[in-house]
Design a protein around this nucleic acid. Structure first.
Lengths: 249, 249
DNA sequence: CGGAGTATTGAGGCGCTTCAAAGGCGGTGG
DNA sequence: CCACCGCCTTTGAAGCGCCTCAATACTCCG
């Protein structure tokens, strides 16, 4: 019904291998983790607010969002997670805290026991390091978003989002950086960008009319990657994506 | 000329002890770290943008800010660090990356070798865990800020800042949560809140006139803590400050 | 073919910015 | 000791970006 658990863990191993040098034993112990594949429909909660939840969530397909719910009913998405990524890695350190998670599209996720994950990490310096770096990158992405939200106007924020998603899609092997499927409604994009759905619509229109993006349904195409990056003041360094993928292309 | 290195490390040990159960050996190995105390004048850089810097910065006195510099000369402060806190802990994991740091006031900092810190951490599961949790809290604070920047209007953002700073001041033993010295210019507060200095001034005036804060020079007093928290929609849980300090008061 | 969610467009209002200028406050040199 | 200078704070007026409210099309799916 969905990818085998083993291949899901392979995605995790691949990703962590980019961040630290894993020994064959490290790989073995990671591949030996207990997993549970779950399908989640769009807009369904994966982790409820305020609940203790001692699992790491590895995204297998679809998009998962980390968010904060506000009293007035609004919400803000603080991170989106693509296939192959671990959602809210910080929660593994602090199972009680952490942000709630929701599926933004129909998604398949793999649950990995937090307890096992911690045991594996503490038993291997290399894995510990990889987890640590992973968390640091997550925090760097968030810091960049805070800056965008605070200081950039809507057009720039949206351009930056598309640049970031594009690169991360490419890094995950999902698709090309300049031609990808972003299965989000404009309301969801608003929850990411801190904008109303109405203004998301207007801003996308402006980007389209400026020739910076082309949109077909929910496919985003970027005719001139360099130009969009310039508009967005996008500097990919914070993503810590190794250049190997650029070279391979 | 400044606090002895040993007492500076004591602050670190105290803080980490709140996050994980450290053994006497853990404490010893932390107290054995090499330190270097440095005085830094206001507005001086501690870590330059883009530089590799393999030290953790423990704030001893004053305020230190983590920020992102924008092309148009603006900057956004993504975190402020109080005495007793480690600034940009994520950098210990990724010495090449991380945000630049600047002293926001005259400050004294303690430099701790990143290499030694990693060695100490990897040698002890408890210390690893404490570091991990520390990073997770840092990320949680940042996530909350992203939400404030994205969704709250200036008055609420500012109220939230004062609530957060107050609690963290109290937690550091610096002062009371409702009566503390915040040695920042209005321009610096603007760099935190994502506002122009002009609007910071107007917003502070509004808070004063509403009786929510009292300001004398750079001393902030909060006459009604509960009321300010309500305005700010402030929920201290994300700070993960243990209740012990509340009880002790 | 009907209905629900999504996208699009318009008009008016509010919050924050920008530009500009004047008033405190502390520090420094004569 | 006072005059001065630079930085910070405070206030005003006008403009822009985004929001709110509202209404109309589109698209998918049963």
């Amino acid at each position: 019904m969905s990818p085998l658990p083993s291949s899901a863990l392979q995605a995790l191993v691949d990703r962590l291998s980019q961040l630290a040098t894993l020994s064959p034993q490290d790989v073995d112990s990671l591949m030996g983790l207990t997993t549970q594949v779950v399908r989640v429909p769009a807009n369904a909660d994966i982790v409820l607010p305020g609940s203790a939840f001692d699992h790491a969530i590895l995204v297998s397909s679809g998009l998962v969002g980390r968010f904060v719910q506000l009293a007035n009913g609004e919400r803000q998405i603080t991170a989106i997670h693509l296939p192959g990524e671990i959602a809210d890695f910080h929660r593994v350190a602090t199972p009680r805290a952490g942000s709630p998670l929701q599926a933004l599209t129909n998604a398949a996720i793999v649950r990995i026991s937090g307890k096992e994950l911690r045991a594996v990490a503490l038993a291997s310096p290399a894995i510990t390091e990889a987890f640590w770096v992973y968390s640091a990158i997550d925090a760097a992405v968030l810091a960049r978003w805070a800056v965008n939200l605070a200081r950039r106007e809507a057009r720039v924020r949206m351009a930056h989002l598309f640049c970031e998603i594009g690169l991360r899609m490419e890094s995950s092997g999902e698709s090309a950086r300049d031609d990808f499927l972003l299965e989000l409604t404009q309301a969801q994009i608003g929850d990411i960008l801190g904008l109303t759905p109405v203004h998301v619509n207007r801003t996308m229109k402006a980007l389209k009319e400026a020739g910076l993006i082309e949109v077909q349904g929910r496919i985003i195409r970027i005719p001139d990657w360099t130009k969009l990056c310039a508009i967005a003041e996008f500097d990919p360094e914070y993503l810590q994506i190794l250049p190997q993928e650029d070279q391979a292309a």
